[in-house]
């Protein structure tokens, strides 16, 4: 809660996209903080606004997107209205990003060495030779010991895991204070996933960088994050530290997410699924955005939009039912879902 120790503060962020007729709201009322060295997990289904949130920080919103409201404070400075030029000094040096698809996030016609050296020279005053030596060292750091040979190869000759390692090397080469990882392991197979996550952890401890980890994989979150933000339909529905969230998820959506993880313990049951899909951003339901899929929805949920309210310390939930706390929520959800699966 200390103002000074927050590296990143996002305050009531609203990002909109112009569809030719009107502004379509992609995310709204997003607020969370991130301290130096901390890892925050941002979880949610496809299309819930996870990526838009991260792209808003980097301002990679394309020609149609813009931040309409709210502030993004990095090191206490609002960067939401920064010019392209000011942003360029932050991008790569202070805030770096790793993308989902390692297969397509390296330029296919340039060598690995070229891309690394370019990145390093862009943000430091190293000479070409020094930058090269440093690039080889970075490759070594991310577990690619044959850096010298790798420098002259093109991306298509490397595997997905190796490319993601190279992306990490590029992203961390200028010691950024914040690393945004947008589904960094989604496109990799499971064994490589574990390696990459481990690598990110080790390098984080070394560089003290804060990580904003965007994922739909709760396993990855449990492994990596200190705190978790759960997003649904462009809003934060629940945020808590990772232990609290996994032990006592409050929001029906979070509970649904938890229930949909296959378990290796217990009987061989049919997987739980949350019925329905995320509403389209042009046709948001009135009231709580989750009410169309929620087993507990009341009349109030259909009419009034709930606010993100603290239930205990830093544990915040956006739900009328939780706020009213009339019934022990988890029991009802479980029994209703069992009923549904019986039917």
């Amino acid at each position: 809660m200390n103002h000074i120790t927050n590296l990143l503060e996002i305050d009531r962020l609203q990002t909109v996209f112009w569809n030719g007729k009107e502004d379509v709201v992609a995310v709204q009322d997003i607020s969370f903080n991130l301290k130096a060295g901390e890892t925050i997990g941002i979880v949610g289904e496809s299309g819930c606004g996870k990526s838009v949130t991260s792209l808003s920080i980097m301002r990679l919103l394309g020609n149609n997107g813009r931040i309409k409201q709210g502030e993004i404070r990095f090191n206490g400075q609002n960067i939401a209205d920064n010019s392209e030029k000011e942003l360029r000094t932050l991008r790569g040096k202070e805030i770096s990003m790793i993308f989902q698809e390692p297969m397509s996030s390296l330029n296919p016609v340039l060598t690995i060495g070229h891309q690394l050296v370019e990145m390093i020279q862009c943000h430091t005053s190293l000479t070409r030779r020094e930058a090269k030596a440093y690039a080889i060292e970075m490759l070594h750091k991310v577990g690619l010991p044959h850096g010298k040979n790798l420098m002259n190869t093109y991306p298509h000759t490397l595997s997905g895991g190796m490319r993601q390692r190279i992306m990490i090397a590029m992203a961390l080469s200028c010691k950024p204070k914040l690393l945004i990882a947008d589904e960094p392991t989604t496109a990799l197979d499971v064994t490589i996933q574990a390696q990459i996550l481990e690598l990110m952890k080790v390098l984080q401890q070394e560089s003290k960088a804060a990580i904003m980890l965007i994922t739909h994989d709760l396993g990855v979150v449990a492994e990596m994050a200190d705190r978790v933000v759960v997003m649904y339909a462009g809003q934060i529905v629940e945020s808590a530290d990772v232990f609290t969230l996994f032990r006592e998820p409050k929001h029906p959506y979070t509970q649904g997410l938890m229930a949909s993880i296959p378990s290796i313990h217990g009987a061989n049951e049919r997987l739980q699924a949350i019925p329905g899909t995320v509403p389209s951003i042009t046709k948001m339901p009135e009231g709580c955005r989750f009410h169309t899929r929620c087993a507990l929805a009341t009349n109030r949920c259909r009419q009034e939009q709930p606010e993100l309210k603290s239930v205990a310390g830093e544990h915040q939930v956006r739900c009328w039912v939780v706020e009213e706390q009339t019934i022990p929520l988890s029991n009802i959800v479980n029994s209703r879902q069992q009923e549904a699966s019986v039917l």
């Binding site: 430091t124 190293l126 020094e130 030596a133 440093y134 060292e137 970075m138 070594h140 750091k141 991310v142 577990g143 690619l144 010991p145 044959h146 040979n149 790798l150 190869t153 000759t157 490397l158 595997s159 895991g161 190796m162 390692r165 200028c174 010691k175 390696q195 481990e198 690598l199 080790v202 390098l203 401890q205 070394e206 560089s207």
Partner: peptide
């Protein structure tokens, strides 16, 4: 010249990728 000092201790924790 490196902003990072190459720390052998942490290096061992990094799993090297398959060779190229």
């Amino acid at each position: 010249l490196s902003p990072y000092e190459l720390d052998e201790g942490s290096m061992s924790a990094v799993i090297p990728a398959e060779s190229v």
